[in-house]
Design a protein around this nucleic acid. Structure first.
Length: 930
RNA sequence: GCCGUCUUAGCUCAGUGGUAGAGCACUCGCUUCACACGCGAUAGGUCACAAGUUCAAGUCUUGUAGACGGCACCA
């Protein structure tokens, strides 16, 4: 069979041709695996927000997950990579509000909650699958039949059950706390959803608070100065605190302040919290608007006056002059009033860091509010136990992620889980007329418990991360519903039993989680705790933390910086496979500055693979790849092994050795998530060893149509394509289908009956028995010989079409090697004949060189420039001498000889002898030039 | 303030105590019948700086400088 392929690889064509077939043939489902004894392998995707579109961070993570899934699948694991999306309550809510305003000029209140939620579902249906659809282009081998959404019915049941169980056990509680409030989104935020922004032009206001004239002391005019960055909160002050030991204020403790603008009198109290050395030493206390003040208030039984509305305006408690004003307007007004009253001591410039909402950048207001919380102390201990006792999860890279994770856990505070939003999982709590709360799995259950159906459900929804915290097991069928006779892993009896019951058993714990470091706390930690709590299992064994893909400017990609790179554009420009393997070539966990040149490198690599295959196929009539004898290791077929150990040439044994070494190393690298190492190994094997040396050595045989040689080469290509497949699925499938002799017989036995695809072929593990160190050494001597001759030709500027004789002197064993490979050496060195002997016998007008194994002389009568030759040799001697000097020094060092391992010392001694000989030879050569 | 990461060739980055690597760019050649998205040959590094441990340090320790990240505080 002879085939003519286009001259360049067309990535787009290949991308169109395979995904649909893979998917419809069911290759992505674990059920494709027909081996009942197969081990399971599972990954759940970090569910992208339904509001998102694919960015480079997704592309990176998806690539790594797909590499793992395809690699394991080819090894015969029953493999599941489960896709899905997250309902992203606050993001979606914001989108829908915006849509309402734009299209109908309405607010959510205008249409009501039910209608709003309906719109949100509509929005999700319309836009929610953008990313997952883009994943098809990426080649992601996810099981679409198991696609999950965090608000799917079964996942919602799981959420309710988890909430109720935690409540019943006292791990969830409702309480009044100072929380982070976003006045724009009008909801509470968890600590993790609050970012910090440094304001350089902040101000610190010093306010004079007059001590009440009710004081019986004579010093009536006394006032206390307090400093604040939020003057408007003084309207809610209920005390001024000083340190109990502060002599300046001791006499005032117990007296009162006439709080300006309010007509209220507030006490001066003593509390250890105050740092006497900071500011004025006196602190205004606003228990409803500051976490520390809240604690002080608790200790001193102070009233807690909330002076703001949920939208950031002042409320009635702030007084008629301020009610309705925005907090920042109120701030200006408070300052103006203090100035009028002569009570503004001073205003300092003050650099301040403010808490802002991570999504809308609005300044977050700490306010007192009643919310739902998860108590984290026992959860934390569980997670810490897992880490210290079992080393779970195993982070890749371990540094710094393990420490970051552990120290975060150690300082963990309770988790605010309620959100004042409409889109999300409603909190399963109902209140009766007296405000008594009933937490239940349904309204009926709540009514039963309450003894009345006059109930009002809690208005709030749950933090999005609450449902994603269940993702590892809720997606595998766990709902927490009371099972029928299944004690260890309760499952949803409403789902397909045969399938989903086994999913949980089979795929939990999942094998690895691949995600970014920004959600280690938000998501990874919570999934670890909740999975342990509710299934007794680990969520996953390993966690691969990817780095950040930075823009060309070295900063994180963002819309505001406009430095983003669209993965789809890269796919169009360089191909999906090139983009994937480039992303995989980034060191695990390292940040990478995006550069197109890197992708271009692998686009070129794809083309190289295409053309190497094309070359073989052009000459492949009557040849096909060696048949596997039915082994399960994906190793070279025995037929090839036999050829190469008996009749094969040195080059054949060498390339087989290199291939097997590469395969073994690739598996080793992937086993520890060293994707970049695997990429580098296969890249250099294919390009350097196979294309630059092996193909070039065998070219004549191939062009002559030597079918045995072509078969052998096709076999190496086919094996290489399998190794490359997880990284470059489209190219490898495209070429594999074109190779003569490929078919289901090459599949891993677990997929024996499936229609042929490289993605089901047996992944090459490499066979130590096929590694031939002697062949590698011998081939090495030939390669250096050829390189030296090429160097002489280049340095002497000898035109390509001028041939010459090459004299080689070497030890007998190397003479034999060179003789046996004479044809190949002549071809690659572009020489006309090889004269091999014990000693070099060449005229003075010769260029000379040495390798570790041979001395070379090339007679160049009329072509040689003696000055150039002298410089060339001198520079070589210089290099060798540098090395010799270093080694001499080392070996003269008695402590080195005494303490370094014997084999190291011996190796240096041997090297030194070689060096001495080579230097002597080169020096003789220089002298002979005259 | 606390914890941590990074600093290697012109650029982007690998690097496992034992002779410093890759891709791209640069220089010099090549229309060699798979590939110019290619082939061949060069050049280019006090591994940020300083001390220490070690027979031996890019690699381990400490400090310094710069870049960055996380956490906490912020009257």
């Amino acid at each position: 069979m002879t085939m003519e392929l286009p001259k360049a690889y067309d990535a787009k064509a290949a991308e169109k041709n395979h995904y649909h077939r893979w998917e419809t043939n069911g290759y992505f489902t674990p059920e494709i695996n027909q081996d009942p004894a197969a081990e399971n392998y599972s990954i759940v995707i970090p569910p992208p927000n339904v509001t998102g579109s694919l960015h480079m961070g997704h592309a990176l993570q998806h690539t790594l997950m797909d590499v793992l899934a395809r690699w394991k699948r080819m090894q015969g694991y029953r493999t599941l990579w489960l896709p899905g999306t997250d309902h992203a309550s606050i993001s979606v809510q914001r989108k829908v509000v915006e849509q309402l305003r734009k299209e109908e000029n309405k607010t959510p209140l205008d249409i009501g909650r039910d209608e709003f939620v309906k719109r949100a579902w509509g929005w999700k249906e319309q836009y929610g699958n953008i990313i997952t659809e883009q994943m098809r282009r990426e080649g992601a081998s996810v099981d679409w039949s198991r696609h999950r959404f965090t608000m799917d019915e079964s996942l919602s049941i799981a959420v309710r059950n988890v909430f109720c169980t935690l409540y019943e056990q006292g791990w969830i509680y409702r309480g009044l706390r100072i929380v982070n409030w976003c006045p724009k989104d009008r909801t509470v935020l968890s600590d993790l959803e609050v970012k910090e922004e440094t304001k350089k032009d902040g101000k610190l206001y010093y306010l004079k608070y007059p001590v009440a004239s009710a004081s019986t002391d004579s010093n009536d005019r006394v006032s206390v100065i307090v400093a604040t960055t939020r003057p408007e909160t003084m309207l809610g002050d209920t005390a001024v605190a000083v340190h109990p030991a502060d002599a300046r204020f001791k006499h005032l403790i117990g007296k009162t302040i006439a709080l300006p603008l309010t007509g209220r009198e507030i006490p001066i109290i003593a509390d250890e919290y105050v740092d006497a050395d900071f500011g004025t030493g006196a602190v205004k206390i606003t228990p409803a608007h500051d976490p520390n003040d809240y604690l002080v208030g608790e200790r001193h039984n102070l009233p807690k006056l909330l002076v703001m509305n949920d939208n950031g305006t002042m409320n009635a408690v702030a007084g008629p002059d301020f009610e309705g004003l925005d907090r920042f307007v109120a701030r200006e007004k408070v300052i103006a009033r203090f100035e009028e009253l002569g009570l503004l001591d001073k205003v300092d410039d003050y650099e301040i860091t403010l808490p802002v909402c991570e999504r809308c950048n609005t300044i977050v207001e700490p306010i007192l509010s009643e919310q739902w919380f998860v108590k984290m102390d026992e959860m934390r201990d569980m997670a810490l136990d897992l880490m210290t006792k079992e080393g779970v999860p195993n982070f890749f890279p371990q540094i710094p992620n393990k420490k970051v994770y552990t120290s975060w856990l150690e300082n963990l505070k309770d988790w605010t889980i309620s959100r004042q939003l409409w889109w999300g999982h409603p909190i399963p709590a109902w209140y009766d007329g007296d405000g008594k709360v009933f937490v239940a799995r349904s309204v009926e259950e709540a009514a039963e418990n309450a003894g009345t159906s006059e109930l009002r459900q809690d208005n709030d929804v749950l933090d999005t991360w609450f449902s994603s915290g269940l993702w590892a097991f809720s997606t595998l069928g766990w709902t927490g519903d009371k099972p029928a006779g299944h004690s260890t892993s309760p499952v949803d009896v409403t789902l397909d039993k045969a399938q989903d019951a086994s999913d949980l058993d089979r795929f939990l714990p999942t094998d690895v989680l691949v995600t970014g470091r920004d959600i280690i706390f938000l998501w990874v930690s919570r999934m670890i705790m909740l999975t342990r709590k509710f299934t007794g299992e680990k969520a996953f064994n390993d966690v691969v933390i990817t780095g950040t893909v930075l823009g060309k400017d070295g900063k994180p990609m963002s819309k505001s910086r406009n430095n983003g790179v669209d993965p789809i554009e890269m796919f169009d420009k360089f191909g999906v496979d090139a983009t994937r393997i480039y992303l995989a070539s980034i060191a695990t966990g390292a940040d990478i500055r995006w550069n197109d040149v890197g992708v271009e490198t692998y686009r070129n690599f794809a083309n190289k693979i295409w053309n190497a295959t094309r070359f073989c196929l052009m000459n492949s009539e009557g040849s096909e790849i060696g048949r596997d004898s039915g082994g399960t290791t994906g190793n070279l077929p025995e037929s090839i092994l036999a050829q190469d150990t008996t009749s094969g040439t040195l080059a054949d044994r060498w390339i087989v050795s290199r291939l097997n070494k590469t395969a073994m190393a690739v598996n080793r690298a992937l086993g520890t998530y060293q994707f970049h190492e695997a990429v580098s190994l296969i890249y250099h094997f294919f390009w350097d060893d196979f294309c630059d040396w092996y193909i070039e050595l065998k070219k004549d045989e191939i062009n002559d149509g030597n079918s045995e040689a072509v078969s052998r080469m096709l076999t190496i290509i086919e094996q290489s394509l399998r190794i490359l497949h997880p990284f470059m699925p489209y190219l490898t499938e495209d070429l594999w289908q074109k190779l003569p002799g490929t078919g289901a017989a090459l599949h891993n036995p677990a997929y024996a009956s499936a229609a042929p695809s490289i993605m089901l072929s047996d992944f090459p593990l490499g066979d130590a028995a096929l590694i031939d160190e002697r062949a590698e050494t011998e081939m090495g001597s030939i390669i250096s010989l050829i390189k030296r001759v090429r160097n002489i030709r280049a340095e002497m500027s000898i035109p390509t079409n001028v041939s010459f004789k090459v004299h080689v002197a070497a030890a007998v064993e190397f003479q034999e090697i060179f003789r046996a490979n004479e044809t190949q050496i002549l071809k690659l060195a572009r020489a006309e004949s090889l004269i091999i002997g014990e000693v070099l016998d060449v005229p003075r007008a010769s260029a000379k060189a040495v390798t570790n194994d041979a001395a070379i002389g090339i007679p160049l009568e009329g072509l040689i420039d003696f000055d150039v030759e002298r410089d060339r040799l001198t520079s070589q001697v210089g290099k060798l001498n540098d090395e010799k000097t270093r080694l001499d020094g080392q070996l003269l060092n008695q402590s080195f000889v005494a303490k370094a391992p014997v084999d190291k010392v011996d190796a240096l001694r041997a090297r030194l002898i070689d060096l001495g000989e080579q230097i002597a030879t080169l020096n003789r050569n220089i002298r002979s030039l005259g």
